[in-house]
C-alpha cells in the first residue's frame, strides 16, 4: 500500500494555475458588500473581487488606497459560494500574508491600490494562495509570471469605463508574442535580458547614491536572492514556452474599462480567456441586468445576433471618462 499513502501537496504551481483555469470563460465582478456579491453570484459570475470601493470611487476619493478591511472581505466570503478574491498594494508582502491567512481564493496584486514598494512586486512563489497581476505589455506579463503569478490580466485603465487602454494592452502583448515567434532563440535571449532590467533599478540607484559606477556584479542577488543572470534565465525559459504556445502560459483576462456586453465580447474576440468587470456593473443603472448581460456576452462572444439581443434595454452604462482627462494613470504603476 506504500504507493497509495496519502501524501497531500498544497500550493503547487499546478493547483495555483489550475484554479485560474477553472474561471476561464467567465466574468469576475468587483463587489463592495454581501448584497452585491449575491447579485453577482446569481447573475453567473465565476468569482467576485471584494473591495471597499469600486475603482471609479477610489479614483474620486483620492488619498491612499489600501487592502480592504478583512471584516468586509469576510462578510463577502460568508455571503457567497463562489471564489472570493481581494486586492493588495503592489509589493505589500504583509497585506498578502494577511489575505492568505484570511483564506481568500486569489490575491490581486493591483495597481488600482496605491503601490507600497517602488521597486518590486511580491515574490508570489512563496505563497500557497494563487495571485493575479496586471500587465500592460509582454515584459510586465513575463516578469509577473516569473515571480509566480498564476494568472495575468490587462491593466487597462480601471474606473474609467473606457476600453481603449485594455485594447492597447491586449494588442501590445499579442503583437509581441507574434514577434517572438519569428525570432531565433538567441534573439529571444536578448529580449530576456531587456525584460529583466527593471529588477536592477534598486541596485543601480544604491550605487548612484554612493557615487559608484552603475555596474551590478554577476553574483550579486538583486531580487529575493536571485542574481540578474538567474532572472534572465528564468524569463528566457518563459519566453521559449510562449513562443511554442503562441500565448501566455497562464490564464489571461481582460480588465480595466469593460463597461458593456459588447466591450466584454470584444475582449473575448481578441483572445482573452475571460473578463474582470470593476465599476461597470454597480455603477450602471440596473446592476443585476448588466451583470447577467455581461456573463452572457462572454459566453456568446462569437454570436453577433445574441450580442445585439443581450445589449438591448440595459439602462445606462457607467458614465465613463476620457483617458486624456485623467489626473492619475493607474496603469503606470508597477512595471
Amino acid at each position: 500500500m506504500g504507493r497509495f499513502e496519502i501524501i497531500e501537496m498544497k500550493g503547487t504551481e499546478r493547483l495555483k494555475r489550475g484554479f485560474a483555469k477553472m474561471v476561464k470563460g467567465g466574468v469576475i465582478m468587483d463587489v463592495t458588500n454581501a448584497e452585491q456579491a449575491r447579485i453577482a453570484e446569481e447573475a453567473g459570475a465565476v468569482a467576485v473581487m471584494a473591495l471597499e470601493r469600486v475603482p471609479a470611487d477610489i479614483r474620486k476619493a483620492g488619498g491612499v488606497a489600501r487592502m480592504a478591511d478583512p471584516e468586509k472581505i469576510q462578510e463577502i466570503m460568508d455571503a457567497v459560494t463562489i471564489p472570493v478574491m481581494a486586492k493588495i498594494r503592489i509589493g505589500h508582502h504583509a497585506e498578502a500574508l494577511a489575505l492568505e491567512a484570511l483564506g481568500v481564493d486569489m490575491i490581486d496584486e493591483s495597481e488600482v491600490l496605491t503601490p507600497a514598494d517602488p521597486y518590486f512586486h511580491v515574490d508570489k512563489r512563496k505563497f500557497s494562495v494563487p495571485f493575479v497581476c496586471g500587465a500592460r505589455n509582454l515584459g510586465e506579463a513575463v516578469r509577473r509570471i516569473w515571480e509566480g503569478a498564476a494568472m495575468i490580466r490587462t491593466k487597462g485603465e480601471a474606473g474609467t469605463g473606457n476600453i481603449i487602454e485594455a485594447v492597447r494592452h491586449v494588442r501590445l502583448v499579442s503583437e509581441n508574442i507574434r514577434l517572438i515567434q519569428r525570432m531565433t532563440d538567441e534573439q529571444i535571449y536578448g529580449i530576456a535580458e531587456k525584460f529583466a532590467e527593471p529588477y536592477l533599478r534598486l541596485a543601480i540607484e544604491v550605487r548612484e547614491i554612493s557615487g559608484l559606477p552603475g555596474q551590478v556584479l554577476e553574483n550579486e542577488p538583486v531580487y529575493e536572492g536571485h542574481t540578474y543572470r538567474d532572472i534572465v534565465e528564468g524569463i528566457y525559459k518563459i519566453l521559449l514556452e510562449i513562443k511554442k504556445l503562441g500565448r501566455l502560459p497562464v490564464v489571461n483576462f481582460a480588465a480595466g474599462g469593460v463597461a458593456t456586453p459588447a466591450d466584454a465580447a470584444l475582449m473575448m474576440q481578441m483572445g482573452m480567456d475571460g473578463v474582470f468587470v470593476g465599476s461597470g456593473i454597480f455603477k450602471s443603472s440596473n446592476p443585476p441586468k448588466m451583470a447577467r448581460a455581461i456573463v452572457e456576452a462572454v459566453n456568446h462572444w462569437d454570436e453577433p445576433e445574441l450580442i445585439a439581443e443581450i445589449s438591448k434595454n440595459l439602462g445606462e452604462a457607467m458614465r465613463g471618462k476620457d483617458i486624456a482627462e485623467l489626473e492619475v494613470r493607474l496603469e503606470e504603476r508597477g512595471v
Partner: peptide, 29 residues
C-alpha cells in the same frame, strides 16, 4: 466546496479500480 477554499486545494495519489498504477488526483475547491 466540501474541501474548503482554494488554500485547501491539494494533490494526492489515488487508487483506480481498473489499473494498478496510482493516478495523481488534482483537487481544486
Amino acid at each position: 466546496n466540501a474541501y474548503g477554499r482554494q488554500v485547501d486545494s491539494f494533490e494526492a495519489p489515488l487508487r483506480l479500480s481498473f489499473d494498478d498504477e496510482p493516478f495523481q488526483g488534482v483537487f481544486i475547491r
